[in-house]
């Protein structure tokens, strides 16, 4: 049995091909998905997605969304997704530092909400780059 993964963002299809195994960060923790998984629907957190192709692991930064698994078909709907290999390490690190600084400066409920979101996104991107090694 083959497992097919499809990662969709509002403007394009990021990934649509066969995989061996994935590890998905859901709202209730990471779950691993192998072929013939029971059909489930889950919310996807801002976090990294690990994909195994034969013996090789790839990472992808997911910016929060939703996943549906069933019939050996995984459909991941996310706001934005970036492959770990496409992210510039330095740039990601800088964004993280800026986000951290912004959170410290944030005042009021609204700014804190915004800063927190930005920080989590930045952190995920850095993780996605570093996880390759």
């Amino acid at each position: 049995m083959t497992l097919n993964l499809c990662v969709l963002t509002p403007n394009r299809i990021v990934w649509d091909s066969e995989v061996k195994e994935i590890i998905l960060s859901t709202n209730s923790g990471q779950i691993g998905i192998l072929p013939n998984h029971a059909p489930i629907a889950t919310a996807v957190d801002i976090g990294i997605l690990r994909i195994r192709l034969k013996d090789q692991w790839l990472t992808m930064a997911l910016m929060g969304g939703f996943a549906r698994i069933g019939n050996n078909e995984i459909t991941v709907l996310v706001n934005d997704a970036e492959k770990g290999s496409d992210i510039d390490t330095q740039e990601a690190q800088q964004t993280l530092e800026i986000a951290e600084a912004n959170l410290k400066k944030a005042e009021g409920k609204r700014q804190i909400i915004e800063a927190n979101l930005a920080l989590r996104r930045a952190r995920t991107r850095v993780e996605a780059v570093n996880a390759i090694s």
């Binding site: 709202n27 209730s28 779950i31 489930i40 629907a41 889950t42 919310a43 939703f66 069933g70």
Partner: peptide, 13 residues
């Protein structure tokens, strides 16, 4: 289909 989390949480996502 099973819901991994509460349906409310999924809707929230």
């Amino acid at each position: 289909l099973q819901f991994e989390q509460d349906p409310v949480q999924i809707l929230d996502a």
